[in-house]
Design a binder for these strands. Structure first.
Length: 587
RNA sequence: GCUGGAAUAGCGCAGUCGGUAGCGCAACUGAUUCGUAAUCAGUAGGUCGAGGGUUCAAGUCCCUUUUCCAGCUCCA
């Protein structure tokens, strides 16, 4: 495809290249805007870029635009593609550009223009009667866009600010041909089947009930999974020299005033009264950890002192943001607070990054890293923030880790390194985070005795690996599509007797396997073997053992794998050997 | 919180113009005792998310509200 760049030059790029694909989708967004303008001339256009899997365009409609309008808009878009307009690029000075936009009554474009420097040459693309102030690039002709589809309509604040007017955003996608579009839509359908909310219900892992919005119920099988993650977590943290504590869920107002949460986090805290005194349910575990640190005088010899806590936290998240296990109002954070001297910061951060990488690799997760800097609503001095931010940056540079900077997204007490994981449809969720905190030790007047015999202030790191166990489980469920590896499966083996006559034999096998520590169920219904297999497959149990007359005589079982089918018959001992080899628990 | 959509049996869904709430699966009972993804028959299951209104009559129309879904904003 020929791509028309902002400087007027022309480059060649395929749809498989980012440049080509983005230009292609961006041009589709313009075609959408042109169609919308033709059908509803009073509409105001805001902006319309390409995004990861398609494009969107934000409009200000003076009526209620809904998905019912898609058909007529798509029909008009088809016409525009067929009319095969050339996309013509040109520039003009800002005054002239504003004049043009005033003529076309486009207030959003004028607002954007007014913020550009007065002498700026403004880039425009024109296709037929439609012109758009735009930095491009675009494909050369509208006829290139052979396959497209409008997908959804949603509200979006003008310029992403909730104080501004909410516009109507139309999402869509486009491809060079119908086959690729079909393929994409099928992939979306497939991804929806992995949705952890759907699988959580189907597999009996957890429940979200109206009685507790954002407060998940863990069902027996989901709790097995959660506890297995916790067991694994305890094991690796013991290895890394962490000491686990547990602090109260509720603490008094004075503590939260000291920590700064009462002032900076109030809108998310649940509070109550005890004997007339304000208490808050913890939205974070750090103040509790701080109090534990202060229960004894500390020495530099104990540093770095790693104190971990599986903290049950509650936050009043806005109703519209709740999302299955990914975004809840109550979750368990695998928190840890590490106290150290300044010169220990780099090594400590590197150690945590390695630990997080180890854990994510264990599950086969891909992740990306972000460095979040000082937000508006922050506490602490400029020097402290600079030192904290530099420490994180240096550690990342040292590790040669790729990261993007997320300006102003830090915690109110310090900057952070965030680890983001992807869900089944490509949305990313922050899980691990490492936060450097100079503020809390000051506010709590934490101290240690140094080599020189004097009192000093420790540096504190907050860090989580899973993030919250709930969110991590959500990612985990979608990543494996419910087909967990053997060691994580709530039911590892299901024994399927051919008929009622063999239930006794099935029970013998079950108790044998249970002694080996396997989680094992029997399907004792009076059903045919095919139906029992079907049920076990739908439950995504990794191993099915078929027990009938043949097996009783030979003292064996017939083994069937979730993904591999019939493996033939074998003795219990050789089965156990194979299962141990695969790993029935995380060692 | 905001914009738009949705809510009917445990789950997945149908329900036309406002006129006696239905299907499939699951559950339960009985029969069947079977060899690698669905055996047959029967039974039971509902304040149609909640509250109010219009109407002779509301699952259906109107208002309020709760929860969920998509996105925005926010965030582990």
């Amino acid at each position: 495809m020929k791509i028309k760049m902002k400087d007027g030059s022309i480059r060649e790029a395929g749809f498989d290249e980012e440049l080509g694909r983005n230009a292609f989708r961006h041009t589709t967004a313009h075609i959408l805007a042109q169609a919308v303008k033709r059908l509803y001339p009073t509409v105001k256009c805001a902006i319309g870029p390409s995004v990861a899997d398609g494009f969107y365009y934000d409009f200000d409609f003076d009526f209620r635009f809904s998905e019912e309008n898609f058909a007529e808009v798509e029909a008009e878009m088809k016409k525009i593609v067929k009319e095969n307009f050339q996309l013509r690029h040109y520039t003009q000075d800002r005054g002239r550009a504003i004049q043009d936009m005033e003529e076309r009554e486009e207030p959003y474009k004028i607002e954007l223009l007014n913020e550009l420097p007065e002498d700026e040459e403004i880039s425009f693309y024109r296709q037929g009667e439609y012109l758009e102030m735009c930095a491009g690039p675009h494909v050369a002709y509208t006829s290139a866009v052979r396959a497209f589809k409008l997908l959804s309509v949603a509200g979006a604040y003008w310029r992403g600010d909730e104080k501004n007017k909410m516009l109507t955003r139309i999402y869509g996608t486009s491809f060079p041909n119908e086959e690729l579009l079909e393929e994409y839509l099928n992939r979306l359908e497939e991804a929806k089947k992995r949705d952890h909310r759907k699988l959580g219900k189907e597999l009996g892992l957890f429940a979200l009930l109206e009685e507790g919005p954002g407060f998940p119920f863990f069902l027996p099988k989901g709790l097995i999974l959660k506890n297995l993650l916790i067991d694994y977590w305890r094991k690796i943290h013991a290895r890394e020299g962490y000491m686990e504590i547990s602090t109260p869920v509720m603490l008094n107002r004075q503590l939260w005033e000291t920590s700064g949460h009462w002032e900076h986090y109030m809108d998310k805290m649940y509070t109550t009264l005890i004997d007339g005194e304000d208490f808050a349910i913890k939205p974070m575990s750090c103040p509790g950890g701080m109090l534990v640190y202060k229960t004894e005088p500390r020495s530099y010899r104990e540093f770095p002192m790693r104190i971990s806590e599986l903290g049950l936290i509650h936050r009043n998240e806005k109703s519209g943001t709740l999302h299955g296990l990914m975004r809840v109002r109550c979750c368990t954070q695998d928190d840890a607070h590490i106290f150290m001297r300044t010169e220990q910061i780099q090594d400590e951060i590197k150690g945590i990054v390695r630990l997080i990488d180890e854990v994510y690799s264990t599950f086969g997760f891909k992740y990306h890293v972000e460095l979040s800097t000082r937000p508006e609503n922050s506490i602490g001095s400029d020097e402290d923030w600079k030192m904290a931010t530099d420490s994180l940056t240096n550690a990342l540079e040292d590790l040669k880790l790729q990261y993007i900077i997320n300006e102003g997204d830090g915690a109110f007490y310090g900057p952070k390194i965030d680890f983001h994981l992807e869900d089944s449809i490509g949305r990313t969720w922050q899980c691990g985070t490492i936060q450097l905190d100079f503020q809390l030790p000051q506010r709590f007047e934490a101290e240690y005795i140094g080599e020189d015999g004097n009192k000093h202030r420790p540096i504190m790191i907050h860090r989580v690996v899973f993030g919250s166990i709930e969110r991590f489980m959500g990612i985990l469920i979608e990543h494996f599509a419910g087909k967990f590896p053997l060691w994580l499966s709530p039911v590892q083996v299901k024994i399927l007797p051919i008929s009622d006559k063999f239930i006794g034999y099935a029970k013998e096998i079950q108790s044998h396997l249970q002694k080996e520590g396997l989680r094992c169920e029997i399907d004792g219904r009076s059903e045919k073997i095919g139906f029992k297999i079907r049920t076990a497959q739908l439950e995504k149990v990794p191993y099915m053992l078929i027990a009938g007359e043949k097996e009783v005589k030979a003292g064996s079982v017939s083994v069937r794998r979730r993904d591999g089918g019939d493996l033939g018959s074998m003795t219990i001992d050789s089965l156990l050997e194979a299962l141990h080899k695969e790993g029935i628990r995380k060692q």
